[in-house]
Structures are given as structure tokens and as C-alpha cells.
Design a protein around this nucleic acid. Structure first.
Lengths: 216, 216
DNA sequence: GTCTATAGATCGATAGAC
DNA sequence: GTCTATCGATCTATAGAC
């Protein structure tokens, strides 16, 4: 468990703006959300937002950063392990992080907002994450663990699953995080592994990795 | 093969509007696309759009209908076959249809535009499609063909894969449709089947179904 | 740090000529 | 069936008082 902040400490206005923005982006998309919508949810007037963020896109940029940077750290964490185990551990950790996040990331990648020049840094981070995912698949195929398949196709399917899996999850309360995470990871592994008998073995090793403290 | 229209016949303005709208929705999302953007791509002025469609949402409604109705027919087509074969056949046919479609369907389900009251019919059609997908999974589990899993989770993963698979496909020219379709279907089947040895058998039967003429 | 007031741009859609 | 002209609403962001 990460050292979470004191739970009873009141959230800063800046933090509440980010949460409101993420929730609205998830519901209506970036362009479908107005700054008035966000301000109303926070409980302040629309121009007050611009004391905390220079533009509406700056809100999105920070939300993207707070999602992408930890994801990059997660996928790069277990460099030593073999590809199947690393992939399984990443998927479990990613689903868990997505569900546990105070921000609703589901709307961040929907519109093609990342094409905007002001978000070039975030677009590069996302491409780096995709490259890591492809690399994991490629390594697995080279190692004989995965069957031959197009790494980019596999990456797209994983991305789609990760985002869509939490799409309807909605209320975190009714969600068995661990169960959901392992279900996704199992599904992917079964789709990729060349030897199905290894599913149980990979899962055991990956869970040992995934539950390990930090990135040290 | 369906009786396709004469290829050289010039497209109606209405059809060109739909194609332009779909392309723009895919790039920028529904709310991120202005009617002026669409008109510019068609080569007419913005108010001229409203001779062909009463509202911007009516364009989206027709695009949704043209995607959802055939999909519903596809998934209901092979009622007699066993669940694994039906699922495989549906996935192959769906990917093929998505890629072959003159409309770019990728932006239609991104924003939560379906929540709009004027699109309630389309929302119901989409829910019916999701129910059919869940039903296929449930039937497969009951028949012992699929391992135990949450049908809604499986449905979400399939939806994510189907949409995301064609997301980056982009230019249809550089795409091996049949290969892509079978890759998605294989991935899903491997993720679901309780007995992996059946993958090849299911694929053979499903391809026989999928290439069969019509829905009779 | 939040407010009121408002600028300045863009949006979807209508009116009416041709 | 497409055009020009334009309405009224809504949008992001700024100015400046408190």
C-alpha cells in the first residue's frame, strides 16, 4: 500500500477541480464538458477556475500526467522477470490503480484531444506506454511464451480492455478490485500464451510481484 | 457478398455528409466537431447541411442506426450453432463489417452522447447488442465450452477490442481484413474457452458459418 | 481566492433569396 | 438544393473590485 495522504484532510480546491473535471470528462467527453459544468460541481463560479488553471486544457494535461506517469512506472518496474509474468503483473496493478484512482480516467482518451499541440508531452508519454506494452508482447513471443501475433493488435486489445473494463464499473463500492483485475489479466494471458498450462504458474509469480511494496 | 451499389455512381450529398460527419466524429468526437467542419469537408456551406438533416444529432442517429442494426442481425444470425462457434463467427463478421464500412464508426460511441434523450432508440439498440453478447457468453459457460467468468466483463472486453482494433487501423488499404478479424476472434476464444484444444475446431466451423451467404 | 461583469469567438439553427 | 445573412445561445478566458 502506498503512503496515502491523511484521509480526513479537506481536499484543496485545485484537487476538487481536477476530480470534478475528470468526472465530467468521463460523462460527456472533453469537448462536451463546459467550464461552467466543472465549476458548478465544485461549487464555485466559472471564472474562479482560472485562478487554479490557466486553461481548460491544462486541467486535462494534469489529469493525463497523473494517469500516465504512474502507469509508465508500473510497466517498467519488474525489468528482470520474464515477459508473461511482467505482463500479468502490470495488468493487475494497472486495473487496481485505475479503480483506486481519485480521478475518473475514462474520459481522458476518448476525444482525439491528445492531438492538440499543447498536449504533445502527454501524447508522447502515451506512445511510450504503448511501446512498452508492445515490447512486452514482442519479448514474450521471442521467448516462446506467447504465440505469434501482431504486437500492436495485442496492445490495442489490451488498451481497449483496460479502459472498457472500468467503464461501467462506476461505483467503486460494488467492485471486487482484485477479482476484476485478475479476470482481465487472465483473459489476456490466455489469449497470448502458447502453452496454456502456464497460466496458473504465471499468475502465481506475477501476483508475488504485483503485491510487492514499491519500485525501490 | 451483399448486392453492393454500383461503385462508380456518384455519392449523394446526404451520403457524403454522413461520411464526413463520421470521419470528423472519429477524429474529434461529436462535441468536438462543428457543423462547419462537416460542411467544409463535403464542400458546401454550413446551413446547407440542414436541408438534409434536421439537426446535428440526426446525423449521429443515422450513423448509429447504420452500425447497430446490421450488428444486431449479425449476432442473431446463427441461432442454431453452439455458442463458441456463434461467437467466433460474429466476431469475424463484425470486424470485417467494421473495416469494410464506408463510415468511420470509431467516434460514435466515445462521448456519452447516447445519453441524450433524442437518441434513446439507439441506446436501446446498443443495449440489445450488449445483451446478445452477454447471452452468448452465458450460453457458452452453461454448455461447458467457456470457463466461468463474468459475462458483462467479457462483453466489455470484447467491445473494447472490437472498437480499439479498428481504431488505429486507419487506412483500409494497408489492412489484412481477414487476418485482423481472425486475430481478434482467436484472442477472444482463447480467453474464454475451457478446453483450448477446441480453438481450431471452433474456428473451422465458425468460418464456414461466417462465409455463408445471408441470413435467410 | 472568489466574485461580477463582460469581452470575443464560435456554436447550432433559421429566414429567405435564387 | 445551395446560397448569404444573421439570430440567439453558449463557450473560454480576461478585467478588476473586494
Amino acid at each position: 500500500m502506498p503512503p496515502s495522504p491523511v484521509p480526513d484532510e479537506p481536499l484543496s480546491t485545485r484537487q476538487r477541480i481536477l476530480q470534478a473535471a475528470a468526472a465530467q470528462f468521463a460523462r460527456r467527453g472533453f469537448h462536451g464538458t463546459s467550464t461552467r459544468d466543472i465549476a458548478a460541481e465544485v461549487g464555485i463560479r466559472q471564472p474562479s477556475l482560472f485562478h487554479h488553471f490557466t486553461t481548460k486544457q491544462a486541467m486535462l494535461a494534469e489529469l493525463l500526467d497523473r494517469d500516465l506517469q504512474p502507469a509508465l512506472e508500473r510497466i517498467r518496474r519488474h525489468r528482470g522477470a520474464n515477459p508473461a509474468v511482467r505482463l500479468y503483473a502490470y495488468l493487475v496493478e494497472d486495473v487496481a490503480a485505475l479503480v483506486a484512482s481519485p480521478f475518473d480516467v475514462r474520459g481522458l482518451y476518448n476525444d482525439a484531444v491528445l492531438e492538440d499541440p499543447s498536449l504533445i508531452e502527454q501524447r508522447r508519454a502515451r506512445e511510450a506506454l504503448h511501446a512498452e506494452m508492445r515490447s512486452l508482447v514482442t519479448d514474450g513471443i521471442a521467448a516462446g511464451e506467447f504465440r505469434a501475433c501482431d504486437p500492436e493488435v495485442a496492445r490495442q486489445m489490451m488498451t481497449g480492455m483496460l479502459l472498457d473494463t472500468i467503464w461501467a464499473a462506476g461505483v467503486p463500492a460494488d467492485l471486487d478490485v482484485g477479482g476484476r483485475a485478475k479476470e482481465v489479466a487472465d483473459f489476456v494471458l490466455r489469449g497470448l500464451l502458447s502453452d496454456r498450462g502456464h497460466v496458473a504458474l504465471v499468475e502465481r509469480e506475477a501476483m508475488a510481484l504485483a503485491t510487492r511494496p514499491g519500485r525501490g
